[in-house]
Computed example of a mutant assay.
Amino acid sequence: MKFSSKDDIEAPIEFVFAQVSDFAGLERSALRRGAEVQRVDTRSSIDVGMTWKASFQFRGKTRRTTIELVEYDPPTAMAFVSQSKALEGRLDVELVALSRTRTRLVLTIDLTPRNLSARLLVQSLKLARSSLLRKFDKRLGGYARDIEERYHRVA
């Protein structure tokens, strides 16, 4: 199952990429939302191979996953792969410079079930696809506005 959303941000591509690759900030944000996130690699710089273990509540169950940065191409793209007992996922982050001060952020999530219970979960997500896409678009729009506000505070 694939979800995709895009939003245009009034900020230069370099600034937007710095914000979406601020992994320490993203970890703190996930912790504030109730997820547990722990970095498990020993890399000192941002690079392919960075890995996190995460756990979070979804539909009344604790889900555990391992997330790895598999593509890192500043300032235009990043990709992450997540693996759990039930699901495999891939998150692609793509940035396109529309002008010097405007950037398009495109997020694509692809989920693949690994067992029967995950197939049922993905099937239920497909049935709720339109409402999930609306929520996904709204969350991405909020994130894009946050990036714009940060840019205007420092610019």
Rank of each mutant, 00 (worst) to 15 (best):
L120Y: 14
R59M: 15
S131Y: 11
K135Q: 13
R59S: 15
S82H: 11
L91C: 09
S84L: 04
A144K: 04
T76K: 11
R100C: 10
R129I: 01
K138G: 04
L140K: 01
L87A: 02
T103M: 06
S99N: 08
K138P: 01
L95K: 02
V96W: 06
V93D: 01
G142Y: 13
S124K: 06
P74I: 03
T103V: 05
S130A: 14
V70D: 00
D110S: 12
L107K: 01
G89P: 03
R104N: 07
K126T: 06
S84V: 09
K85Y: 11
Y143Q: 13
S99L: 08
R100L: 14
R119N: 08
R139A: 15
P75N: 07
L140A: 04
K135P: 00
G89S: 11
M78I: 09
G60I: 02
R145D: 12
A79F: 00
Q123N: 12
L140N: 04
P113W: 02
F80Q: 03
S131W: 11
L127H: 07
N115H: 02
T62A: 09
P113G: 00
S131E: 13
Q123A: 15
L87S: 04
L107M: 10
A97C: 02
L95S: 01
F136W: 04
R129F: 13
L98G: 07
S130F: 14
S117Q: 10
V106G: 05
K126H: 03
F136R: 00
E94M: 08
A97V: 04
K61S: 15
V106M: 10
A118W: 08
Y72R: 00
V93I: 14
N115S: 04
V70I: 14
F136C: 06
K135H: 13
K126S: 13
M78F: 08
D137R: 13
F80Y: 14
L111E: 02
S84A: 10
